[in-house]
Design a protein around this nucleic acid. Structure first.
Lengths: 246, 246
DNA sequence: CGACTTCGTGTAGCGTTGACACCAACCGGA
DNA sequence: TCCGGTTGGTGTCAACGCTACACGAAGTCG
């Protein structure tokens, strides 16, 4: 930031936000995609997003997109990474600040005037416009990491939920079965859930399950872990940059 | 990304990269700052950085700054977060993609024509221009996290180093003493260091220490950790967003 | 050669993790 | 109402991993 003057208009860049909106629906991890109604990539599916307007925050720009594609009370939103390859958009230089969002599974997609919006299974994705496949791969990786060392899983569920529903959501996202007793021990010891007096009695047989809700104002914090008590592997084939967070 | 057309020139944004360049020098964690030679914030210290030019990658824009402020062979560089509050720059709307870099302690600062560049202790910082204090706080947090669960510590040292030097670097960054035997066990089990046949004999008394170097092509990878075997604390006073990476 | 400094090494106790099986509550149909 | 079917909810024990901790080795200096 040493230049005295802002760059000339011609040297300014278009800045967009793109959202990877995840939800667990139909026992599957899904992401919200919008079909492009105009060139370039007309007809292709893409992450919902749009250009940042001069007076708004990046977070605001991202949050503003949400009601355009789905009905949702509160959603978890987090900035992910900024993608800025010079030719990622054929129209010209556009840098994209990627966000990911977590929604309770109930949210139905909401089409816009000329843009069809639909949930897609992350296991069965169409070809995506721009570099959105890369963005989505990255978002997915981050989502899994995040779920492993933080407890944002609630954001994928309605306000009240059973422990089994929570565990199932984790299993779906992580793609791996978890031990019931250990899962419950951990999540309860973490002291971020509050029992409600209510039970889920609905749908069919079986013993009714206690409903829990997420304790507001409980914030996950990674307990200071001494150095890296983990592992190291040889350089994997995975040829990706973006190894930030983890 | 549903609009068909790019925004008008007037609605484009200036995009800058700002770098938090860290190094361990004089038994202290330091960051490279440049004194601003022009308004706004003339005379204030700021993170080195500059505007992104249309044909270059964000990473390139960041890497291009490095030789302007210091001599360095290879430096570790990683994108951090993108800051986009509308009024963070009094000249107009500028969004800043923040990077952090790690340098071997030897690197001397290198002034530019009208910009003095100096190392500053992170424990004794001057007032910074723009929102750079916030960016730096964030970068520092990420650096500490990163060091705890990844083994980038080498990047703060010259090619060959002793285990004690490495441990000292970790202690300085983390601000906490570490157990010698445990540190060595961990770092060696990780199998990312290679012994050299050489010893550090210089400076003064004591038994000479074996020199090690960082194994190229050894990539840290967080061993898949089951769920969050960690802790949770009440919402801390720390009123910050940006809880991404961890 | 003795005092001083830094290097380099092993173990035992403890806490945490992961694996594992059964009774409880409710439903529906016979 | 009883019985089979389904889902909910609970405790222990063994293996492992982390932490804490002290002393002989190798060299320097006077």
């Amino acid at each position: 930031m040493s230049e005295a003057e802002l760059p000339a208009l011609a040297d300014r860049l278009a800045v967009s936000v793109d959202l990877a909106v995840f939800s667990v629906r139909a026992h599957d991890l899904q992401v919200l995609l919008a079909r492009r109604g105009a060139a370039p990539f007309r007809g292709r599916w893409a992450l919902p997003g749009g250009f940042v307007r001069p007076p708004e925050t990046l977070d605001d720009a991202a949050r503003r997109r949400l009601p355009e594609v789905t009905d949702v009370p509160g959603a978890y939103l987090e900035q992910l990474y900024t993608f800025g390859a010079p030719r990622r958009d054929p129209r010209g230089r556009v840098i994209s600040v990627a966000y990911f969002a977590l929604l309770a599974g109930a949210a139905p997609p909401r089409g816009t005037e000329d843009a069809e919006v639909r949930w897609h299974s992350v296991n069965n994705l169409p070809e995506l416009a721009f570099d959105h496949a890369e963005i989505l791969r990255y978002a997915l990786r981050r989502l899994r990491y995040k779920l492993e060392y933080t407890a944002v899983g609630f954001e994928l569920l309605p306000n009240e939920f059973t422990l089994t529903e929570l565990q199932t959501a984790y299993e779906i996202v992580l793609g791996e079965k978890l031990d019931k007793r250990n899962f419950r021990r951990r999540i309860l010891e973490a002291d971020i859930l509050a029992e409600t007096p209510r039970y889920r009695e609905s749908e069919g047989q079986g013993r009714p399950a206690r409903l829990y809700r997420y304790k507001r104002n409980a914030v996950m914090e990674v307990k200071a872990r001494r150095l890296f008590p983990w592992g190291v592997k040889e350089a994997s084939d995975e040829r990706q940059r973006h190894d930030s967070p983890e």
